[in-house]
Protein backbone atom coordinates (compact mmCIF):
# COMPACT_ATOMS: atom_id res chain seq x y z
CA UNK A 1 0.00 0.00 0.00
CA UNK A 2 1.43 3.42 -0.91
CA UNK A 3 2.65 5.34 2.11
CA UNK A 4 0.43 8.25 1.15
CA UNK A 5 -2.60 6.34 2.37
CA UNK A 6 -1.16 5.45 5.72
CA UNK A 7 -3.15 7.10 8.52
CA UNK A 8 -0.17 9.16 9.66
CA UNK A 9 0.56 10.61 6.26
CA UNK A 10 -3.13 11.27 5.61
CA UNK A 11 -3.35 13.14 8.90
CA UNK A 12 -0.27 15.18 7.93
CA UNK A 13 -1.89 16.03 4.59
CA UNK A 14 -5.12 17.17 6.24
CA UNK A 15 -3.25 19.17 8.92
CA UNK A 16 -1.06 20.84 6.30
CA UNK A 17 -4.10 21.65 4.18
CA UNK A 18 -5.75 23.31 7.17
CA UNK A 19 -2.54 25.22 7.96
CA UNK A 20 -2.37 26.50 4.38
CA UNK A 21 -6.00 27.61 4.49
CA UNK A 22 -5.41 29.27 7.85
CA UNK A 23 -2.30 31.18 6.75
CA UNK A 24 -3.66 32.21 3.37
CA UNK A 25 -7.06 33.06 4.84
CA UNK A 26 -5.80 35.29 7.66
CA UNK A 27 -3.07 36.90 5.51
CA UNK A 28 -5.62 37.48 2.75
CA UNK A 29 -8.14 39.11 5.07
CA UNK A 30 -5.64 41.35 6.89
CA UNK A 31 -3.82 42.06 3.62
CA UNK A 32 -7.13 43.19 2.10
CA UNK A 33 -7.93 45.35 5.11
CA UNK A 34 -4.63 47.18 4.53
CA UNK A 35 -4.38 46.84 0.75
CA UNK A 36 -7.92 47.88 -0.19
CA UNK A 37 -7.85 51.39 1.30
CA UNK A 38 -4.25 51.76 0.15
CA UNK A 39 -5.19 50.73 -3.38
CA UNK A 40 -8.18 53.09 -3.44
CA UNK A 41 -5.94 55.91 -2.24
CA UNK A 42 -3.26 55.15 -4.83
CA UNK A 43 -5.94 55.22 -7.53
CA UNK A 44 -7.43 58.55 -6.42
CA UNK A 45 -4.59 60.69 -5.13
CA UNK A 46 -2.66 61.77 -8.18
CA UNK A 47 -2.80 65.38 -9.33
CA UNK A 48 -6.34 66.55 -10.03
CA UNK A 49 -7.96 63.42 -8.60
CA UNK A 50 -10.50 63.02 -5.78
CA UNK A 51 -8.04 62.95 -2.90
CA UNK A 52 -5.24 64.73 -4.75
CA UNK A 53 -2.01 64.37 -2.76
CA UNK A 54 0.69 63.74 -5.35
CA UNK A 55 3.56 63.74 -2.85
CA UNK A 56 1.94 61.20 -0.51
CA UNK A 57 0.96 59.16 -3.54
CA UNK A 58 4.56 59.09 -4.75
CA UNK A 59 5.95 58.07 -1.34
CA UNK A 60 3.35 55.32 -0.84
CA UNK A 61 3.95 54.12 -4.38
CA UNK A 62 7.65 53.85 -3.64
CA UNK A 63 7.06 51.85 -0.45
CA UNK A 64 4.65 49.54 -2.24
CA UNK A 65 7.15 48.99 -5.04
CA UNK A 66 9.97 48.30 -2.58
CA UNK A 67 7.87 45.69 -0.78
CA UNK A 68 6.81 44.15 -4.07
CA UNK A 69 10.33 43.85 -5.40
CA UNK A 70 11.74 42.06 -2.37
CA UNK A 71 11.77 38.30 -3.06
CA UNK A 72 9.35 36.64 -0.66
CA UNK A 73 11.83 34.24 0.89
CA UNK A 74 14.13 37.18 1.70
CA UNK A 75 11.21 39.15 3.14
CA UNK A 76 10.40 36.20 5.43
CA UNK A 77 13.84 36.20 7.07
CA UNK A 78 14.44 39.95 6.83
CA UNK A 79 11.45 40.84 8.98
CA UNK A 80 11.97 38.20 11.67
CA UNK A 81 12.35 40.90 14.40
CA UNK A 82 9.05 42.46 13.35
CA UNK A 83 7.41 39.04 13.25
CA UNK A 84 8.61 38.35 16.77
CA UNK A 85 7.25 41.70 17.89
CA UNK A 86 3.80 41.04 16.42
CA UNK A 87 3.34 37.28 16.84
CA UNK A 88 5.50 36.86 19.96
CA UNK A 89 7.56 34.24 18.11
CA UNK A 90 9.29 34.05 14.76
CA UNK A 91 8.53 30.42 14.03
CA UNK A 92 5.33 28.47 13.48
CA UNK A 93 2.19 28.83 11.45
CA UNK A 94 0.87 31.94 13.17
CA UNK A 95 4.22 33.69 12.86
CA UNK A 96 4.28 32.92 9.13
CA UNK A 97 1.13 34.98 8.73
CA UNK A 98 3.13 38.17 9.36
CA UNK A 99 5.40 37.99 6.27
CA UNK A 100 2.53 36.64 4.19
CA UNK A 101 0.41 39.63 5.14
CA UNK A 102 3.23 42.05 4.48
CA UNK A 103 3.71 40.53 1.05
CA UNK A 104 -0.04 40.47 0.36
CA UNK A 105 -0.94 44.06 1.31
CA UNK A 106 1.11 45.91 -1.36
CA UNK A 107 0.20 43.28 -3.94
CA UNK A 108 -3.48 43.81 -3.15
CA UNK A 109 -2.99 47.59 -3.16
CA UNK A 110 -1.68 47.46 -6.74
CA UNK A 111 -4.35 45.13 -8.09
CA UNK A 112 -7.09 47.17 -6.39
CA UNK A 113 -5.56 50.36 -7.81
CA UNK A 114 -5.74 48.88 -11.30
CA UNK A 115 -9.34 47.77 -10.74
CA UNK A 116 -10.41 51.23 -9.52
CA UNK A 117 -8.58 52.95 -12.39
CA UNK A 118 -10.63 50.79 -14.74
CA UNK A 119 -13.80 52.64 -13.71
CA UNK A 120 -14.93 55.14 -16.36
CA UNK A 121 -13.91 58.69 -15.39
CA UNK A 122 -17.29 59.88 -16.69
CA UNK A 123 -18.94 58.17 -13.71
CA UNK A 124 -16.85 60.23 -11.30
CA UNK A 125 -17.84 63.38 -13.14
CA UNK A 126 -21.51 62.36 -13.06
CA UNK A 127 -21.33 61.70 -9.32
CA UNK A 128 -19.61 65.04 -8.72
CA UNK A 129 -22.34 66.77 -10.72
CA UNK A 130 -24.88 65.20 -8.33
CA UNK A 131 -23.11 66.75 -5.37
CA UNK A 132 -21.37 63.60 -4.12
CA UNK A 133 -18.46 63.98 -1.70
CA UNK A 134 -15.19 62.19 -2.51
CA UNK A 135 -15.97 59.56 0.11
CA UNK A 136 -19.45 59.00 -1.35
CA UNK A 137 -17.90 58.63 -4.79
CA UNK A 138 -15.61 55.88 -3.48
CA UNK A 139 -18.41 54.17 -1.59
CA UNK A 140 -21.24 54.48 -4.12
CA UNK A 141 -19.45 54.57 -7.44
CA UNK A 142 -15.83 53.39 -7.49
CA UNK A 143 -16.00 50.32 -5.25
CA UNK A 144 -19.36 48.98 -6.52
CA UNK A 145 -18.49 49.57 -10.17
CA UNK A 146 -15.06 47.97 -9.74
CA UNK A 147 -16.43 44.97 -7.82
CA UNK A 148 -16.08 42.46 -10.69
CA UNK A 149 -12.48 43.55 -11.28
CA UNK A 150 -11.76 43.59 -7.53
CA UNK A 151 -13.11 40.05 -7.22
CA UNK A 152 -10.75 38.84 -9.93
CA UNK A 153 -7.89 40.79 -8.37
CA UNK A 154 -8.45 39.21 -4.97
CA UNK A 155 -8.70 35.77 -6.56
CA UNK A 156 -5.31 36.37 -8.14
CA UNK A 157 -3.97 37.43 -4.75
CA UNK A 158 -5.21 34.28 -3.01
CA UNK A 159 -3.64 32.07 -5.68
CA UNK A 160 -0.34 33.93 -5.28
CA UNK A 161 -0.55 33.63 -1.51
CA UNK A 162 -1.00 29.85 -1.80
CA UNK A 163 2.24 29.84 -3.78
CA UNK A 164 4.02 32.06 -1.24
CA UNK A 165 2.81 29.90 1.64
CA UNK A 166 4.94 27.03 0.33
CA UNK A 167 8.02 29.05 1.30
CA UNK A 168 7.17 29.70 4.94
CA UNK A 169 8.41 26.23 5.80
CA UNK A 170 11.71 28.08 6.15
CA UNK A 171 10.43 29.50 9.44
CA UNK A 172 8.47 26.43 10.49
CA UNK A 173 5.24 27.73 9.05
CA UNK A 174 3.95 24.36 7.98
CA UNK A 175 1.36 24.02 5.27
CA UNK A 176 1.17 21.93 2.13
CA UNK A 177 4.33 23.27 0.49
CA UNK A 178 6.35 22.54 3.59
CA UNK A 179 4.97 19.01 3.71
CA UNK A 180 5.96 18.45 0.13
CA UNK A 181 9.53 19.66 0.74
CA UNK A 182 10.10 17.78 4.00
CA UNK A 183 8.48 14.48 3.12
CA UNK A 184 8.38 14.38 -0.63
CA UNK A 185 11.85 15.80 -1.22
CA UNK A 186 13.96 15.37 1.91
CA UNK A 187 12.55 11.93 2.84
CA UNK A 188 12.33 10.66 -0.72
CA UNK A 189 8.55 10.08 -0.71
CA UNK A 190 7.56 11.05 -4.25
CA UNK A 191 3.97 9.90 -3.75
CA UNK A 192 3.59 12.42 -0.89
CA UNK A 193 5.00 15.10 -3.19
CA UNK A 194 2.51 14.07 -5.86
CA UNK A 195 -0.38 14.12 -3.38
CA UNK A 196 0.62 17.62 -2.19
CA UNK A 197 0.82 18.92 -5.76
CA UNK A 198 -2.56 17.39 -6.61
CA UNK A 199 -4.21 18.95 -3.55
CA UNK A 200 -2.68 22.34 -4.45
CA UNK A 201 -3.90 22.06 -8.03
CA UNK A 202 -7.42 21.27 -6.87
CA UNK A 203 -7.29 24.10 -4.31
CA UNK A 204 -6.09 26.71 -6.81
CA UNK A 205 -8.57 25.46 -9.39
CA UNK A 206 -11.39 25.76 -6.86
CA UNK A 207 -10.38 29.26 -5.77
CA UNK A 208 -10.10 30.44 -9.38
CA UNK A 209 -13.47 28.97 -10.38
CA UNK A 210 -15.15 30.52 -7.37
CA UNK A 211 -13.60 33.91 -8.15
CA UNK A 212 -14.54 33.72 -11.82
CA UNK A 213 -18.11 32.80 -11.11
CA UNK A 214 -18.52 35.53 -8.49
CA UNK A 215 -17.01 38.11 -10.84
CA UNK A 216 -19.37 37.02 -13.60
CA UNK A 217 -22.33 37.32 -11.29
CA UNK A 218 -21.24 40.83 -10.22
CA UNK A 219 -20.66 41.98 -13.79
CA UNK A 220 -23.80 43.49 -15.31
CA UNK A 221 -22.17 44.81 -18.45
CA UNK A 222 -22.68 41.81 -20.70
CA UNK A 223 -26.23 40.81 -19.86
CA UNK A 224 -28.60 40.28 -22.73
Amino acid sequence: MPEVFSPQILKLLVDSFVQTLYMVGIAGVIGTLIGLPLGVFLATSQRGELFAAPAVNAVLGLIVNAARSTPFIILVVAIIPLTRLIAGTSIGTSAAIVPLTIAAAPFIARVIEAAIRGVDQGLIEAARSMGASPLQIVQKVLLPEALPAITLALTLTVVSLIGYSAMVGAVGGGGLGDLGIRFGYQRFMPDVMLAVVLVLIVLVQGVQSLGDSLARRFDKRSRH
Binding site: D120, G131, V141, P144
Partner: peptide, 28 residues
Protein backbone atom coordinates in the same frame (compact mmCIF):
# COMPACT_ATOMS: atom_id res chain seq x y z
CA UNK B 1 -22.08 70.11 -3.42
CA UNK B 2 -25.38 71.26 -1.96
CA UNK B 3 -25.89 73.71 -4.84
CA UNK B 4 -25.15 71.02 -7.44
CA UNK B 5 -28.29 69.20 -6.32
CA UNK B 6 -30.30 72.00 -7.90
CA UNK B 7 -28.36 71.69 -11.17
CA UNK B 8 -28.91 68.42 -13.03
CA UNK B 9 -26.55 67.24 -15.74
CA UNK B 10 -26.76 64.74 -18.59
CA UNK B 11 -23.86 63.46 -20.67
CA UNK B 12 -22.94 62.37 -24.17
CA UNK B 13 -22.02 58.88 -23.00
CA UNK B 14 -24.82 58.76 -20.42
CA UNK B 15 -22.41 57.91 -17.56
CA UNK B 16 -24.75 55.39 -15.97
CA UNK B 17 -23.50 52.97 -13.35
CA UNK B 18 -23.31 49.56 -15.03
CA UNK B 19 -24.00 47.69 -11.81
CA UNK B 20 -27.15 49.61 -10.94
CA UNK B 21 -30.52 49.11 -12.56
CA UNK B 22 -32.46 52.00 -14.09
CA UNK B 23 -34.09 52.40 -10.68
CA UNK B 24 -30.74 52.31 -8.88
CA UNK B 25 -29.24 54.90 -11.20
CA UNK B 26 -32.09 57.34 -10.70
CA UNK B 27 -31.92 56.67 -6.95
CA UNK B 28 -28.20 57.52 -6.76
Amino acid sequence: RQERRSIGMIFQHFNLLARRTAFGNVAL
